[in-house]
């Protein structure tokens, strides 16, 4: 028996919206420790890793490890039938091929259940090595989304460079070029509005902007985003999910041949 109950159903909606553009079908892996998902986009350039720890749920029961294959667009559609304040419960039998989503209104005066067929998805898990990154930038998530959107009006790729001076986002296109520099800024009143740069070595990498724009669909999940880069590794863009875990996106760079 699997039973996961979340008082903030709206959180689950945000999680699905953050993934469904990048990944169509994925396995939700549930165990006693929580629920996780790892999937690559169809071109194998980006990878999304989700973790929702069991202690973040209001009720979490998972008698047996389960890997539940779902079409994320179908789940997202289904969750749109839940109110933002609804309590969402997922239920599945150990041997069944369906999952039930139950939505309860906050006053408990409306209860809906939607049953969805599970899919058999062959997916391979990748080992993500622990790494020390040359540069880690923490910044407001809305600012990061704004920068990616603004630069995409000019070009398709972005060069992200971290130096002592700050983090620079540069692009070039047919109509011209653009540079946006963000300096470390820890003097603001609220920590979620600050930009913090931890740099061991300067690093400069090139990425396709359309993937970064997909990642920014996670912006509603967190006020801040952390971007980690090393010259010989995919970048990591991480949004923390309050008290529960994270959604991490890995993106392979473009390199000069």
């Amino acid at each position: 028996m699997l039973e996961l109950r979340l008082l903030q159903g709206g959180l689950l909606k945000k999680v699905l919206e953050a993934m469904r553009e990048l990944v169509t079908d994925a396995n939700f892996d549930c165990s006693r420790s929580g629920c996780s998902l790892q999937a690559m986009d169809s071109s194998h350039v980006a990878l999304v890793a989700l973790l929702l720890r069991s202690d973040g749920f209001d009720h979490f029961r998972c008698d047996r490890n389960r890997s539940m294959g779902m079409n994320l667009n179908h789940v997202a559609k289904l969750l749109r039938c839940a109110g933002n304040d609804d309590i969402v419960t997922l239920k599945a039998d150990d041997d069944g091929d369906t999952v039930t989503f139950m939505f309860e209104s906050p006053k408990q005066d409306k209860i809906a259940d939607f049953e969805m067929k599970l899919m058999d998805i062959q997916s391979e898990h990748l080992g993500i090595p622990e790494a020390e990154y040359q540069a880690i930038v923490k910044m407001p998530s809305q600012e990061f989304a704004r920068i990616c959107r603004d630069l995409s009006t000019i070009g398709d790729t972005v060069v992200i460079s971290v130096t002592k001076e700050g983090v620079k986002f540069s692009t070039k296109g047919d109509i011209g070029s653009a540079n946006i520099v963000c300096r470390q800024n820890t003097t603001v009143d609220k920590p979620e509005e600050s930009t913090v740069i931890e740099m061991k070595d300067p690093v400069s990498l090139t990425f396709a902007l359309r993937y970064l724009i997909s990642f920014t669909k996670a912006t509603p999940l967190s006020n801040t985003v952390t971007v980690s880069m090393s010259s010989d590794l995919p970048m990591v863009v991480e949004y923390k999910i309050a008290d529960m875990g994270y959604i991490r996106y890995y993106l392979a760079p473009k390199i000069d041949e």
């Binding site: 690559m40 071109s43 194998h44 350039v45 980006a46 990878l47 391979e124 898990h125 990748l126 080992g127 993500i128 090595p129 790729t157 090139t206 396709a208 590794l233 995919p234 890995y250 392979a252 760079p253 473009k254 390199i255 000069d256 041949e257």
Partner: peptide, 14 residues
């Protein structure tokens, strides 16, 4: 020319 690398160039199948 700029080549797009893939995730599998960095992370291996488990």
């Amino acid at each position: 020319t700029c080549i797009q690398r893939r995730i599998l160039d960095y992370f291996s199948r488990r």
